[in-house]
């Protein structure tokens, strides 16, 4: 199913913590404060994966969270975008050789946008969303 232009202006975000230290969570919350006001662009946080268009994944995916991450990912209706927030999700970060790791995130589910940082600043997260929008626009064009 091809996304329409209105898709870009109404991204509903669901946040999934796969074993993060809460640093990235604090920055995500900072990114939705009135200072940055992402609701200007129709972006809002939703509580249920069924309502979501974008999934923010934080943390390095610990063993117990792998099944949950797969389940929540499959619960999000198509078309959907996955954003991986923070160094842990990209490479495992300081936990890269931990016995308890199933990740990083892109070994479990397909990831569209990576936002590096430990934790990334709100500006970086917003830049990530803009990159995700650009990817969606490419999908609309049908070239991707």
């Amino acid at each position: 199913m091809k996304p329409t232009p209105s898709f870009n202006r109404s991204l509903w975000v669901y946040h999934f913590n796969s074993g993060s230290c809460n640093g990235c969570e604090i920055e995500i919350v900072a990114a939705i404060t009135p200072r940055y006001d992402p609701e200007r662009f129709g972006i809002k946080l939703v509580g249920s994966p069924r309502h979501a268009d974008v999934m923010l994944v934080t943390g390095p995916v610990v063993k117990k969270m792998k099944d949950r991450l797969l389940r929540v990912y499959s619960q999000i209706p198509d078309p959907k975008v996955v954003m991986c927030i923070g160094t842990c999700g990209i490479s495992g970060g300081v936990f890269y050789d931990s016995y308890n790791l199933e990740g990083p995130v892109d070994e479990v589910i397909p990831v569209d946008v990576y936002v590096p940082g430990c934790p990334p600043r709100p500006e970086a997260i917003i830049h990530g969303v803009v990159t995700a929008l650009a990817k969606l626009e490419r999908l609309e064009g049908g070239s991707a």
Binding site: R9, S10, P77, D78
Partner: peptide, 12 residues
Amino acid sequence: IDIRKLLVKENI
């Protein structure tokens, strides 16, 4: 815009 987007989404 929200309604138009929801109409494009998959209905699970």
